[in-house]
Simulated assay, not measured.
Amino acid sequence: MERGNHTSASEFLLLGLSSQPERQELIFGLFLVMYLIGAAGNWLIILAVASDSHLHMPMYFFLSNLSLVDFCFISATVPKMLVNIQAQTQSISYGGCLAQMYFCILLANMDNFLLTAMAYDRYVAICHPLHYSTTMSLQTCALVLGCSWLIASSHSLLHTLLMARLEFCASNMIPYFFCDLVPLLQLSCSNTQLNQLMILLVGGLIVLVPFLGILVSYIHIVSAVLKVPSARGKQKAFSTCGSHLTVVILFYGTITGVYLNPSPSHSADKDSLASVIYMVVTPTLNPFIYCLRNKDMKRALRKLLLRLPRGG
């Protein structure tokens, strides 16, 4: 019997998206461009919100935090993948793999909670506008953000500690480009029933409750907007929710594609491709969705870009 965490695996191999060497340069270039665009887009959102006093309101407070989380999300996986391609290796240390899994769960949870907070913000703004300033006060928003980080970090720590107690004595090859919870459990030769139970109970609860909160918020929003007599009033009310609703559909749609499809219906290749959409494409697209559909963000970004120093 080995000591410590009883694992014989000192490292794992991230198989990535393709085993063909001729495709590695294309994958490297594509992911580098997506990472740079995603990083720039999310930081522009953060700077625009911070620099424009008109955006110092709860909706954009949560949006800037969502952009920070999305930047960290892509930074938790893509740089390691790019380094591995350049070094022509697929390895990641055991500790590095657990750390990557921890941050992926943490940041996915934060995306989930922030989208829920933004839905509630829109619900209060549209359904109870007279109570908006008191209900969505700075103290309330800070409390929601702090509780979200606490719950998200506790949940990811739980899964990381449960994973650390398992043995890995067979294959150490992960058919993804990052260390994810489910493929790691599939590699273990220990009893994973407790891990699976926690995924079902705690993980399911953390995803389901916020999703139901978003659903209930939008049912009330749609009901309130349909009562608005003028078509222009309805359009204005819906326009304030369009960007958020698009991001919600993209986020939960890709989660469903990765984790809730029946296993016989899809292959490891399809899982890996779906994880790219969930882990990289969605955080990269979020800033553009908000910029293209939100007039306030467009104005703030124009002001920010005009302030930037120009060369020449």
Rank of each mutant, 00 (worst) to 15 (best):
M1H: 14
A9D: 00
S10K: 03
E11N: 10
L15M: 15
P21A: 11
L26W: 08
F28W: 11
F31Q: 00
G41M: 01
W43C: 08
A50Y: 08
A50C: 08
F61C: 11
F62A: 02
S64L: 03
D70V: 03
F71C: 08
F71G: 04
P79K: 03
K80A: 06
M81V: 01
V83H: 13
Q88R: 11
G95R: 05
G96T: 00
C97D: 08
M110H: 03
A125F: 14
V144M: 07
C147K: 07
S148P: 00
L150I: 08
S156R: 00
E167T: 09
M173I: 07
M173S: 11
F177R: 00
Q186M: 12
Q193K: 13
N195D: 10
L200M: 12
V202C: 13
G204M: 00
G213L: 09
I221F: 09
I221G: 03
V222D: 02
S223E: 10
S223N: 07
A237D: 05
A237S: 09
S243A: 15
L260S: 09
S265L: 15
H266W: 06
H266I: 11
V276G: 12
I277S: 11
V280T: 06
V281W: 09
T282Y: 14
P287Y: 09
F288N: 02
L292W: 12
R293E: 04
N294Y: 05
K295V: 13
D296K: 08
R302A: 15
K303P: 07
L304Q: 11
L306W: 10
L306F: 10
